[in-house]
Simulated assay, not measured.
Amino acid sequence: MGTRHSRVAAWTLVATFSVIAALVMVPRHALAADSEPSLSEAQAAIVVDSTGSVLYEKNPDEQINMASVTKVMTAVVALESGTPLDKVCTLSKPELAENAMVAGYEAGSTSSLEDLLHVMLVYSANDAAYEVAVAVAGSEDAFVQMMNDKAVELGMNDTHFENPHGLDADGHHSTVHDLAILARYAMTTQPFIADTVRMQSTTVNVNGIETTFPTVDHLLGSYDGLLGIKTGAGNYVTAFMGCARRHGTTLYTVVLGCQTREGRFTDTEALLDWAFGTYDSYVLASPEKAMGERPFAYDLALMCPVATQATTKGLVWPDAGPTTYVRTMSSTAQLCAPSDAAGVCTWSQAGRTVGACTYVATAKLTYARSGFGLVDELSPNLMGAKSA
Rank of each mutant, 00 (worst) to 15 (best):
V344F: 10
M73P: 09
L55D: 11
A307D: 03
V344Y: 07
A32E: 15
P322Q: 14
P60T: 11
I193Q: 04
E262L: 07
D149A: 15
M303P: 00
K71P: 07
H165T: 07
E106G: 05
D49E: 11
D61C: 09
F213V: 08
C89R: 04
C258I: 01
A320Q: 11
V102D: 02
L220F: 08
T253S: 13
D299V: 01
N207T: 09
Q309R: 15
E262T: 10
L251W: 08
V132Y: 02
T353P: 00
H173P: 05
R184D: 02
A194W: 02
G384Y: 07
R264M: 10
T266S: 04
E162A: 13
A97M: 09
M147S: 02
S331L: 15
T250R: 01
A151G: 14
T51C: 04
T16C: 13
T312F: 03
G371V: 10
A30L: 15
T278V: 11
L79C: 03
F213C: 09
G234E: 11
N235F: 08
A128F: 03
L55N: 10
D49P: 07
K58H: 10
E162N: 14
G292D: 08
R245P: 01
Q349M: 08
T268Y: 01
Y185N: 05
Y236S: 15
Y185K: 05
T159Y: 04
L378D: 05
A320T: 07
K313G: 06
M291I: 00
V144K: 03
D267C: 01
F161P: 08
H29E: 15
A100P: 06
N381D: 13
T311K: 15
S111C: 11
M241E: 04
V344A: 12
V14P: 01
T332H: 13
V122M: 09
S68N: 09
T211I: 06
Q349T: 06
T328D: 15
L219E: 12
T260N: 05
H165S: 13
L113D: 03
C357L: 01
A239L: 03
A107D: 03
P338L: 04
R369A: 14
P380C: 08
L23I: 13
S201P: 03
K386C: 09
Y56C: 09
H5A: 02
V136I: 10
P164G: 07
A15N: 14
V8L: 09
S111I: 03
N207A: 07
L182C: 04
C89P: 00
V136D: 01
H172C: 06
A133P: 02
